[in-house]
């Protein structure tokens, strides 16, 4: 027994170091000065990387844009995915397979190809080069995943919980906030995280539809991928990775504040 526990600990340590060590290296890279091959640690340090990204005048506004964009995309995703996922999980209706296929097309067809066509339409209805145009285009690669995740959540939950609550006298709204949502939280978390990561990393779509009017962090960050300056790249990467985390904390906080039940185990 003791040996087994020790083995588990070792395995956990090994696994977590797989995640922690690269992040540490990245951080070290971002503050490294001279750091050449046989040396295990940088031989000098500099703030050059961090300095140059924070000097960028567009950073603050890009952060702000990215924030509001991602938040809007998340909320819209959840708003649309919940009813759709519920229908797909519990109802059978004519053309269900077709709708399922259409819903998952954006995963198979590159969103960029779809966006090309949408760009013209958005131009005509005056949404191109606007915040809402970009929000709309970000729905394309995110919504199918959200629906899929939430649908799996509904299927796991089953429809009987809701029926049970209804026969106990609960209204649809009450059932949603007290029964469904609390139990779908793991799915909601997963969806938020995925949507955030996908939305954050949309470079081509944002460029095309945003037309330079909507500048997100990805627009600042991606051109540096070709840069030889590893410090700048590393500093940007860390900043980029922090964003989904802040979202997760924010939403988690909101959930804890608003939902009446606090449970960790479901």
């Amino acid at each position: 027994m003791k040996q087994e526990a020790a083995q588990h600990k070792l395995l956990l340590l090994a696994l977590s170091s797989c995640f922690v060590i690269p992040v540490l290296l990245l951080f070290l890279q971002s503050i490294a000065g001279e750091w050449r091959f046989p040396h295990l640690l940088p031989s000098s340090f500099s703030y050059y990387g961090w300095e140059s990204i924070f000097q960028d005048a567009s950073l603050v506004s890009a952060l702000w844009t990215t924030w509001s964009l991602t938040l809007t995309v998340i909320l819209l995703n959840l708003l649309l995915a919940f009813p759709a996922a519920k229908q797909l999980a519990f109802s059978s209706f004519r053309g269900k397979e077709m709708i399922e296929t259409v819903l998952f097309l954006p995963i198979f067809i590159p969103a960029l190809a779809l966006a090309m066509g949408l760009h013209l339409t958005l131009l005509r209805i005056g949404l191109a080069s606007t915040f809402w145009g970009v929000v709309l285009i970000h729905m394309l690669p995110t919504l199918p995943y959200t629906i899929r995740i939430v649908r799996a959540g509904f299927e796991r939950l089953g429809s009987q919980q809701e029926s049970q609550a209804q026969t106990l006298g609960a209204s649809q709204v009450h059932v949603f906030f007290h029964i469904t949502l609390p139990q779908l939280l793991p799915s909601v978390r997963a969806a938020i995280f995925l949507v955030t990561v996908i939305s954050l990393s949309q470079y081509a779509l944002t460029t095309m539809i945003g037309g330079g009017e909507v500048v997100t962090l990805a627009l600042l960050y991606f051109p540096f991928a070709e840069s030889a300056s590893t410090q700048v790249m590393a500093a940007f990467s860390i900043l980029f990775a922090l964003l989904p985390l802040t979202f997760l904390f924010l939403i988690e906080g909101l959930i804890r504040l608003c939902l009446p039940y606090r449970v960790s185990k479901i």
Binding site: A170, S171, P182
Partner: peptide, 30 residues
């Protein structure tokens, strides 16, 4: 919701995120 009828299923269908007391009093809560 309006019918004064309660249905009990094969599974107890207790709400897993509520305590036993919260479960029992759910009908009063609504």
């Amino acid at each position: 919701k309006k019918r004064p009828i309660v249905l009990m299923f094969q599974d107890s269908l207790l709400f897993p995120h509520m305590t036993v007391l919260e479960n029992v009093t759910y009908g009063l809560r609504v």
